[in-house]
Design a protein around this nucleic acid. Structure first.
Lengths: 233, 233
DNA sequence: ATTACTATTATGTAGCTACATATAAAAGTC
DNA sequence: GACTTTTATATGTAGCTACATAATAGTAAT
């Protein structure tokens, strides 16, 4: 009697992945149907389904009902990016976290911000500028606008003590988040605040969060020179 | 008799997510066990399991056997980054793709590259420099090293016609990929090739791929000024 | 040939059961 | 009290069935 070995779906996934790597299945090829693979590998179809779902999520194969599974001809490099709370990021580096509030002002959104937030007309929001420090040295400079429609409570928060970054992440869950990454040259003001030469190339992480079509906040985080963003494996 | 409505796991996920958003469940809180939520929402535990798995993957909750499910106190912003083949990226923008091979040379890996690839000692690899164009204008400048151990066939490819980017993506699937993003100032050579002023801030996408601990290639892609990297929703 | 309809088929998913596994909590031991 | 062992329990997962859904392929009508 055959012993009923139970294969984990990750094993099955890895074995199918191995066939992609050794080109048993080549780009553009159609894979056997789940049921046949299941029989071949000695597991249930549901296990193959889970494995295939994962490979499809990773961008390696494409699946279509009735159409079957095909190996992607133009695979994309798909990576997961984690942006933690800045304090946690600094502490994970083994550095001492510090924080300075530079500006806290009620102001009407300038056109660029209004556009980012998809506002019909400019509105008054809380404008905050703050500097995050690692071991006393500038780490990230954030320029943030916070909607008073969705976060009126922010007015009661002492932003000199608790950063808007932390307060919002902890208190304002979002339903949607846009991230964009780009490079800028340090202007005189930024250079002074980040203690870097004017013209230095800096990585910027821009993040906008929404709750049900209503904007919560948009931040432009200018990182210190040499900052690198890494992806999870 | 109660009609047997079948709730999709995405619905269940969204309903639990809504409870995170409206703070029925607050950061640090322990959620009811899957079975109770299932009863509450009128579905099977397996459906809740799938929904919870997704919420955990998104970084919103943490699950532990016996420990139950808790709302993450410090949620991370987790986003998915897609890096397509450059040709596909340019064409998706509605631009005409162009490509120029600038350099193709066998050379011994300089220390920085050897370190990136975790080589014990420098080895000879194929060094390629190429420029990707969008509508005749410089788009991405790539500086690439290709291992002859894992990709000896690359020597037979006419890189003046087919870019190493495309050939490798299509022919050399990888088991691991490191991505790092940072900003640099254009030096004289880069500035000339990308047709940009010296000192311009440029976003760099560095990517290294491996197959079973053996490096395949490492690329430093210097993007044109103003290039932005966006995440999937 | 073109269109409209129908049948077929591969994946997608919900629900069930059974068992595995990690671990928090309780009980026992020194 | 500190440590170890046991027990209870919530999540994790494999396998099964049944049905839903999309899309292709085939058939019939025009």
């Amino acid at each position: 009697m055959t012993e009923p070995i139970r294969h984990s779906w990750t094993d099955i996934r890895d074995r199918i992945h191995a066939r992609l790597l050794d080109r048993t299945y080549r780009p553009g090829d159609k894979l056997p149907r789940d049921e046949d693979i299941a029989q071949d590998l000695g597991c249930a179809r549901s296990t193959v389904q889970r494995a295939m779902r994962d490979l499809a999520d990773a961008g390696l194969v494409e699946r279509k009902r009735k159409g079957g599974t095909t190996v992607r001809a133009d695979p994309v490099t798909r990576a997961t990016l984690d942006v933690p709370i800045t304090r946690a990021e600094v502490e994970a580096l083994g550095s001492v976290y510090g924080y300075h509030l530079l500006l806290r002002d009620l102001a009407v959104t300038p056109p660029a911000i209004a556009a980012t937030l998809a506002l019909r007309k400019p509105v008054e929001m809380l404008h905050v500028e703050a500097l995050h420090l690692a071991d006393q040295r500038p780490y990230i400079l954030e320029d943030r606008w916070i909607s008073l429609e969705t976060s009126p409570e922010i007015l009661g928060v002492d932003l000199a003590v608790e950063s808007a970054n932390e307060w919002l992440v902890r208190n304002k869950p979002y339903s949607r988040c846009d991230l964009r990454l780009y490079a800028i040259e340090a202007n005189a003001r930024t250079a002074l605040q980040l203690d870097t030469p004017v013209g230095a190339a800096l990585l910027v992480i821009e993040r906008t969060t929404w709750i049900n079509e209503a904007p919560i906040t948009t931040v432009r985080s200018v990182t210190k020179p040499g900052y690198q963003m890494l992806t999870q494996i």
